[in-house]
Write a protein that binds this DNA or RNA. Structure first.
Lengths: 184, 184
DNA sequence: ATCGTTGGCCAACACTTGTTGACTTCGACG
DNA sequence: CGTCGAAGTCAACAAGTGTTGGCCAACGAT
């Protein structure tokens, strides 16, 4: 049971992400995270300093929009929806952010950074209209967060039952419109 | 400082709603609620039995769709958006539900009841298509919860800055489509 | 073999939480 | 008046929280 500090650090981080995603910030206790990682709670403090800092490390996140490089303009909506759905399912990171962002101010701030700082520039670049990009980014965020909320957190039965393709069919045109059309 | 029990009960309930809306379930402590209501924490227990029961009482909620009686079919989207926005702003109830529904299973269940039990039947009635109503209700819920999240909880600056009319312009067509159009 | 470094564990701290029971005060009714 | 029930207060509880410091035990270098 001797490991390098980097190893245990990443074990703790994995356990933390899971707990934060499942329980939210307050209910995910250092003790429960440590128990999951089969490690003493004091280790968590040693390696991360405080619960707040552990959380900050666990909530690191990149939306990875580089994957959306050369999509034809009229298919952007569907592509965005698919991309987001996969991000939701890939790791717990988005769920961590949503579960905690609701009660933890730090997480809410992080969320704003991500969606304003990563999504808006990407939209500006893809559409060539920097002026309206922040609003478009916010609308797309709201729609995709709403779906994530309904599907992964609140688990509305009809949304849970839908396939990825169903969701793309329903949401694609909406996102397409938020991205490219000009509302009054 | 002598009151009837009904009076104090409703004072407590008001304070509880505010705290739950602002802090979520775990961070809203009985002691802080009691302090806001300027009464002893023991009173809260006397009148509501437990924190869980106090919360159940505070999360009572009715979406009041009866207000949407005679709207022409092609204006339903805009009407729904306006209605939801006003519900968000009218009382803290929706914010209580959203803030707590993310960490508290009871609140999540309540949320499912409300959106499946109140919204879906209304849509079935308005559109005359009971078969697709649950899915349509879920899509509308996801969109409106997403906007509530972005505007009132996470406070995305562009969403906060928009007026009610701006939001209706952006969201109206989306909701209209979720309500009445037939996706592949 | 010894030493210093490093990963790991234990026990305790100060504090906060929900919850309880006994006690005091008030007001109405006989 | 006195009394009885209801409204309000107080202090304490058991459990759980983040956090700390000291102590062990394993390893690598000397």
């Amino acid at each position: 049971m001797r490991r390098t500090s980097e190893e245990t650090k990443s074990i703790i981080l994995a356990a933390a992400r899971e707990r934060f995603a499942a329980d939210g910030y307050e209910r995910a206790t250092i003790r429960s995270i440590a128990a999951d990682a089969k490690i003493d709670p004091a280790m968590v403090m040693r390696y991360f300093g405080s619960k707040e800092k552990l959380f900050a490390a666990a909530a690191e996140f990149d939306l990875r929009f580089d994957a959306l490089a050369d999509v034809p303009r009229e298919q952007l909506g569907a592509a965005f929806v698919r991309h987001f759905l996969r991000q939701w399912e890939a790791g717990e990171s988005l769920q961590v952010l949503l579960r905690t962002g609701i009660t933890n101010d730090g997480a809410a701030e992080r969320m704003r950074e991500i969606f304003a700082g990563q999504l808006a520039p990407k939209i500006a670049q893809l559409t060539g209209d920097p002026a309206s990009a922040p609003v478009r980014a916010a609308m797309v965020s709201a729609q995709m967060l709403g779906i994530g909320l309904a599907r992964y957190i609140l688990q509305f039965p009809p949304v849970v039952a839908m396939s990825e393709e169903d969701l793309v069919t329903w949401l694609g045109p909406t996102v397409q419109r938020y991205l490219t059309e000009q509302p009054a």
